[in-house]
Design a protein around this nucleic acid. Structure first.
Length: 367
DNA sequence: GGACCCTTTCCTGGTT
DNA sequence: TAACCAGGAAAGGGTC
């Protein structure tokens, strides 16, 4: 009970502080500024430095997973205030949780604890943590560069990485795939576009991610709005007259925009993973691809897309292409027939087979 | 700078 | 009717 009292105090203090410094309120609109994009269902804090940045609460610059109980409360307080919610109906005794616990709350649990605010909190947390997966992926990339390890030790993530936190600040970017298509729990990673009320889909800290998912293409992008708005400018349909666009790949970003987005990237970053390698990596990590793809005949290299659009979205995310679809992905797959990287599997929808020019999928090779 | 490669995008038509 | 498949065509972007 004492804990509950303490929590209430923190809560009150925080709200008081916010009233006193209304101007200084964290610009976490932030968490909703891109939110109009229902496809993405995400938004990220702006990276534009603001005069108030010095007054941002601690939780703003921390990963939710690492939030202390106090920071969790501050975060809750912020949203209580933001939504003009009556905090008296919140069960404070249930708020005594750290970020780790918070991140594993289901939507239903959030509702139970926070009432109508539960949905809001769940969504906001989801937004932040979806960004974090990208942070994690980035972290993995750095890790991979030094260790050549395919997988990341889970404990490493749980301990955190101060350097990577900085990266998070710099590079948050919404993850459409993860936000809409993944229910990603520690130890399980399965897409589920329809499930918005199940387990907390925000966290993937227990997941191990194939090394090829870590390359440049999947790196978080700069999160400032002006840049982000230009990221997929070429990918929008109907951007030419008569609602039709020219054939071919749309022009990429202007140099300025690219610089903005990729200031972190090496100018000579190697070519990203090829599509077939990306597909292969999903397949050879069954613990991650549950629900995405499956082997039909492992020995023969026959596999099937279970959630074709989800895979396409993931591929699109990797290539920074929000308009990727299975239709397009499958066209690229069909080009592999000629090169014998893939073989046709006639009469079976969504089924492909690795060809003689592919590698790295056979069990013998993996051993 | 240009060739080449690897997609990406659009499209038409066919199949399930 | 929708989803998928097949493959031509055109184009962008990265690498060499």
């Amino acid at each position: 009970m004492a804990g509950s009292c303490e929590i209430s105090n923190i809560f009150s203090n925080y709200i008081s502080a916010m009233y006193q410094a209304d101007e200084g309120q964290p610009s976490l609109d932030v968490l909703g500024q891109h939110g109009n994009d229902s496809t993405l269902g995400l938004s990220v804090p702006t990276s534009q430095p603001s005069a108030e940045s010095a007054e941002k609460p601690e939780w703003f610059s921390e990963l939710p997973y690492f939030w202390t109980k106090v920071q969790v409360l501050e975060w809750i307080s912020y949203h209580v205030e933001k939504n003009k919610y009556d905090a008296s109906s919140i069960d404070f005794s249930c708020c005594n949780m750290d970020g780790h616990t918070l991140c594993h709350c289901t939507r239903d649990q959030m509702r139970l604890i926070f009432g109508p605010l539960g949905d809001e909190l769940y969504d906001r947390l989801h937004e932040i943590t979806s960004d974090e997966l990208n942070w994690i992926i980035d972290l993995l990339e750095k890790e991979d560069a030094t260790s050549q390890e395919t997988f990341l030790d889970t404990t490493h993530l749980e301990l955190g990485n101060p350097g990577a936190k900085d990266s998070l600040e710099d590079m948050k970017f919404p993850s459409p795939f993860l936000s809409t298509d993944f229910t990603c729990l520690p130890g399980a990673m399965s897409p589920d576009s329809s499930d918005t009320s199940g387990q907390c889909s925000a966290y993937c800290l227990g997941c191990k991610i194939p090394s090829s998912w870590e390359d440049d293409g999947i790196l978080p992008q700069h999160r400032s709005r002006p840049c982000r708005d230009t990221v997929f400018a070429g990918g929008k349909k109907g951007d030419t007259k008569h609602g039709k666009r020219k054939r071919g790949r749309p022009r990429k970003l202007s140099k300025e925009s690219r610089d903005c987005l990729e200031s972190r990237k090496s100018k000579h970053s190697p070519r990203g993973t090829h599509l077939w390698e990306f597909i292969r990596d999903i397949l050879i990590h069954p613990e991650l691809n549950e629900g995405l793809m499956k082997w039909e005949d492992r020995r023969e290299g026959v596999f099937k897309f279970l959630r074709s659009e989800a895979v396409a979205q993931l591929w699109g995310q990797k290539k920074k292409n929000s308009s990727m679809t299975y239709e397009k992905l499958s066209r690229a797959m069909r080009y592999y027939y000629k090169r014998e990287i893939l073989e046709r599997v006639d009469g079976r929808r969504l089924v492909y087979k690795f060809g003689k020019n592919s590698s790295g999928w056979k069990e013998e090779e993996l051993d």
